[in-house]
Simulated assay, not measured.
Amino acid sequence: MSDQPEPVAALWEWQFQGLCRTTNPDIFFHPEGERGPSRRRREARAKAICEQCPVLRECREHALAVHEPYGVWGGMTEEEREEVYRRSARPRTA
């Protein structure tokens, strides 16, 4: 086992296995002004693809680590990730 850091390219290898690579990216990112039922349907389609993806965990971890502001990543919408950020920023009480 080496103490050398993993090459940057290797850190991104998981992306080559993502099902999103073979899907129209418009499913994962909302167009300007999309709201309500249209947005919920598109997000549900994106999340259904994510649920089958072999790298869902890696994708989600990446999106949360970099605070990805746009799109469905790792089966999570922008709003769902924002909720995770808010919860983790709250002070914990005993």
Rank of each mutant, 00 (worst) to 15 (best):
E80D: 07
D3C: 01
P37T: 13
G74L: 11
W73V: 08
G33W: 04
Q4P: 00
V84N: 08
L19A: 02
E61W: 00
W73A: 05
N24T: 02
G36A: 05
L56A: 08
R60A: 11
V66I: 15
P31H: 14
R92I: 07
R60L: 07
K47F: 03
P37V: 13
R21C: 04
F16P: 00
Q15N: 04
A89M: 11
Q52D: 08
E80P: 08
R81Y: 02
P91Q: 12
R92T: 10
A44P: 15
T23E: 12
S88L: 12
S88C: 05
R35L: 09
V55H: 00
A89N: 07
G18I: 04
G33H: 05
L11Y: 00
G74W: 10
H30I: 07
Q15P: 00
A65L: 14
V84L: 09
R57N: 10
F28G: 03
H67L: 11
E6F: 02
P7I: 00
A94K: 03
F28M: 10
G75L: 05
P31C: 08
I27E: 06
R39D: 02
Q52K: 15
A10P: 13
R87Y: 01
C53V: 06
R86P: 00
R81H: 04
E78C: 00
R21H: 03
L19S: 05
S38L: 10
W73E: 06
H62W: 13
A63W: 06
R42H: 10
A65Q: 15
C53H: 05
R87G: 02
A94T: 12
A94R: 09
C59Q: 05
T22H: 08
S2T: 15
L11V: 03
K47Y: 05
E58V: 04
G33N: 07
N24Q: 09
P5R: 05
Q15M: 13
S88D: 13
I27D: 06
K47L: 03
R81L: 02
V72E: 06
R60F: 02
K47Q: 15
G75T: 07
T22W: 07
E61S: 09
R21T: 12
V8T: 07
R39Q: 14
R21G: 14
K47T: 01
R87V: 04
P5L: 04
T77R: 09
T93L: 14
W12C: 02
R39Y: 07
E83R: 10
W14N: 04
I49T: 13
T22I: 06
R35V: 14
V66S: 06
W12H: 12
G36W: 04
D3W: 10
E68M: 10
E51V: 02
P54E: 07
Q17N: 10
L11M: 12
P54R: 01
G71Q: 10
R21K: 12
G36N: 11
